[in-house]
Every structure is written in C-alpha cells, then in structure tokens.
Computed example of a mutant assay.
Amino acid sequence: MAQIRVRPNGRIQFDLSLYGRRFREGTKMLATPKNLNQAKATLKQMNAEIDLGTFQYRDYFPGSKKIALFESLQRERHPDRQYPFFDVYAQEWFDRQKAKWKSSYQSTVRNTLDRYLIPQFGNCLISEISLSQVEFYRETLMQEVDPKGEKKLSSRRINGILWPLVAILSLAADELEFRYPLRRYKALREERADSHPMTLLEVNQFLAAVTPEWRDYFVVRFWTGMRSCEVHGLVWDNIDFNHRLIRIRQNWVNGEACAVKTPKSRRELRMCDTLFDVFSRLKNRADKHAEYVFTHQGIPLDTHFVSKKLWFPTLLKAGLRKRRPYETRHTAAVLHIAAHENPLYISQMLGHSDTKLLFNVYAPYVANASRLDGLAFSQMMNEGPIENRV
C-alpha cells in the first residue's frame, strides 16, 4: 500500500510498501492544500492499481533509480509465467536480427529499444501488450514538443520508433502462439519533407563565402549531388583520372566504412572539367599515403562536423536561409534539370532506381525546365490548325 507523508522541509513524499520492501519517493511539491488534494488523488489511483496487481512503478516515478528493484521483485512473484517479458524477448530478437543489418542501422534499432520501447513496455509480459497501449503511447510521442513549443517527433520518426515493436510482437505471436494484438494497427501517415534547393545565384554566394580550404569539397557536393555518407566515403582508389570517373562504392557512417545504400547507389559519375580540376588539385595537395579524399585531422569527415563547423556558419556568412546540408543533393538535381540534362542521366547520377522521384520531387522547382507547365502544349495549339502547318 501507499501513503503520503510531509517531510521536514514541507514537501510531499510518497511512502510505498511493495513486495515486502519500502519505497520512498520525494516530490518537489510543497504541502499546500491544493497540492495535497492532487497528491491524494494520485495516491487513490496508485492504491487501486496495487490492489488489482497492475501497478507499474515507472508510470508514476519514471526517473527513479528504484524502478529496476521494483521490477525485479515483481518478476520474482511470477516465476511460472508462460510468456517472457518484453525486454527479454526484445533483446533476443535484436541478437537474432542484427546480423542482417548494417552497423549504422543496428545502432539505430538499439537506440530505439533502449530509449523508447524497453522503458515503456519492458516490464510487460509480451503476450499482454495491447493495441490500446501502443496507441496511447504513440499519442504521447505525438504530443511531445521541444523548448520552442514545436512538435518534437515527425510522423515518420514515430513510425520508425514503433516499427521494431510491431516486428517483435508479430514474431513473438507466431513463435509463442498467442493472439497478435496489432492486427488493426495502422502506421501514421507520413508528411513529405519539404526540400529547399538553392538557386544558381545562391550556390555562387555560398561558394564565395565558404572557407577556401573547403570550397572544393562543396563544389563536389553541388556538382554531383552525392549523399554526405558517399562523399565522405570516397577513397582515392575510386577516383579514375584516366577515364574521368568517380566510382561510388562505399559510405562512411558513424566512424566506419560500409556498403552503399542500395544497388543503384553503386555507380560511376563522370567528371566534367570543373570536377576534374577539383580532384586534380586535391590529389596534388594530399599526402601520398592518404586513403580518403576528404578528411579532417587525418580521418574521414563526420556529418556533424560538416554541419556545425562548415555548412551552417557559411550559410550565415553568405546571408542565406537556414537549410540542411542534404540540400546540396536537391540543389544538384534541380540545377541539372534546369540545364536540360537528360532525366535518365540525372537519376543515374543521384543513384535513383528510376526517374519518378526526379520529376515528383525536383521538377516543380524548375520553371519550364521539364515541359511540366503546359506552356509547350499551349504554344503548339496557338499556332493554328494542324492541317494548315507544313
């Protein structure tokens, strides 16, 4: 059972007796009549859950160091349970699946489990997790805001957080033979992220403002549209001066080299004169034993270093609006379309599987570049009857 006490400093304390152990949790609330009434309402709910056997320590004291002790005592009372707890099965699932994933994705899933799913569902028997629990938790994530009052997590991020939970419950239900609880679960509709490519004038402003040491690095990004991980993973062995080719063969992610994102990402980019001059200069300045093209303090570039030390300071210096470093990729796509390059060539350059993404995402930014505004049709129709043309 639980009780309320008032400490000598005048603050309210909860005093609980659970599984033969005493748990005390202080609060920052002073023992005013209003706070005491609020604490009594919480106490009534806690005691009701304790009587029903549904009380979870972390629901009331999420930051407490005593959560682990409570949950270990709780589990000792159920040694004959038929199904495992979520945290145990989730760890087994991760160990079984991680060999299929790149190390960067392993880190992402591991962080999702440790930061979100295990704290929320870890002490639940895996067979008892319900659709309502998952939907209530999702609603909690949707309501989180940052210090500026803006939504903290996008729908895409929330779907990413809950995907491992869906996969774990699906596998567990099949293997342990219980009713899968998320048959009616539907992922959130994801908003398409807006892109903010630069104009040619803005690219020139940026290149004029960037530190000379890093100008060639950004020329490569604006001219090729390579992803950050691709340009950071470039090695000199994959720069073919004889055939003027840049071979994309690996990524650099979280401090290690790994395979490219998709089969289409493994590609060759042709070097125009500008790029050939850039790589020639870089090669002449590089140490003869250097492996990677772009480095800082002897190691391949890190995306956080580029963002904080190079990209955003240069945007500020150039008087340009704030946007992600990834916009160099969008900018390259838009400017190639504006230059009337072959769409198949642009898609191949970007490592897309087809031209659909190219036209759906980038073409609207380029007036008249891709004949998507109806102007060509209008001009044709205004030339007069077809039978009168030569």
Rank of each mutant, 00 (worst) to 15 (best):
L141N: 05
V134I: 01
V166G: 09
D174M: 03
L125F: 07
P147F: 02
K152A: 09
E128K: 03
L131A: 08
N159P: 04
D146H: 05
R138V: 05
Q143L: 12
S132V: 11
E135I: 08
L153H: 15
F121A: 09
Q143A: 14
E144H: 00
Y137F: 14
P119C: 11
A172S: 15
T140S: 12
A172I: 13
Y137L: 01
Q133G: 00
I168W: 11
K152Y: 00
Q143N: 11
Q120G: 09
S155W: 01
L171D: 13
K151S: 09
L162P: 02
K152M: 10
I129G: 04
F121L: 04
N123C: 06
E175L: 15
V145A: 02
Q120A: 13
R138D: 11
K148F: 08
I168R: 07
L131N: 07
G160N: 12
T140A: 07
I158N: 06
E175Q: 13
E139K: 00
L165T: 02
L141G: 04
P119K: 09
I158K: 05
W163G: 07
S154F: 04
V166Y: 14
L131I: 11
S170Y: 12
E175I: 14
L141W: 02
F136K: 08
A172G: 07
A172M: 13
I118Q: 01
E150C: 00
S127L: 01
I126D: 04
P147R: 06
T140R: 11
P147I: 10
V145T: 14
L171R: 13
G149W: 03
A167Q: 15
C124G: 02
G149P: 03
L125M: 14
D174S: 14
I168Y: 12
E144V: 10
P164I: 04
Q120N: 12
I118G: 03
I129V: 06
E128S: 13
A167E: 14
R157C: 07
E144N: 01
K152N: 03
V166I: 14
S130R: 02
Q143E: 12
I158R: 01
C124K: 13
G122F: 02
S155P: 07
V145Y: 01
L131S: 08
V134W: 05
E135N: 11
E139F: 12
N159L: 08
